[in-house]
């Protein structure tokens, strides 16, 4: 990825998340508190620092973004209100948007349909994953 492109992506992530990584004072409380810690290759404090440095590509290609439970423990306990979970969510969104491909076609639906599934979930799945 060119530096320019990485930078644009970084700006995009910061815009979506409304997080200022410069507020981080590197105490590590987010990673200390993270229940999904063992599942992740990159941990909440690394997300903050890597986005700050512009190393977004590694994050996009890693499965860690899908391991975040969005439990918001890091947001609650961060002493500087950096909100790492929002940042991870933004990276996740960028990843989905970046690919822009059609991940969910209508003919896949019957196989996945669960009678318990609310209608709303089907609609949002299309919104999120279909082109």
């Amino acid at each position: 990825m060119s530096k320019q492109k990485a930078n644009a992506l970084r700006e995009e992530i910061l815009r979506i998340s409304n997080v200022d990584p410069l507020k981080c004072m590197r105490c590590g409380k987010c990673s200390a508190t993270c229940p999904a810690y063992d599942e992740m290759n990159y941990h909440p404090h690394e997300f903050v620092y890597m986005v700050e440095r512009g190393a977004v590509e590694e994050l996009l290609d890693d499965t860690s973004i899908y391991r975040c439970l969005s439990c918001f423990a890091c947001i609650d306990r961060c002493p500087r209100q950096v909100e790492p979970a929002k940042l991870i969510e933004a990276v996740r969104n960028t990843c989905l948007r970046k690919q822009g491909a059609n991940h969910f076609k209508a003919d896949m639906l019957p196989g996945k349909l669960d009678p318990e599934l609310p209608q709303q979930a089907v609609v949002s799945a299309f919104r999120k994953y279909a082109k």
């Binding site: 105490c27 590590g28 409380k29 987010c30 990673s31 200390a32 508190t33 993270c34 423990a73 306990r77």
Partner: peptide, 9 residues
Amino acid sequence: HYVKGMVGK
């Protein structure tokens, strides 16, 4: 033991 980092929980 001085450990750089925070207690989370």
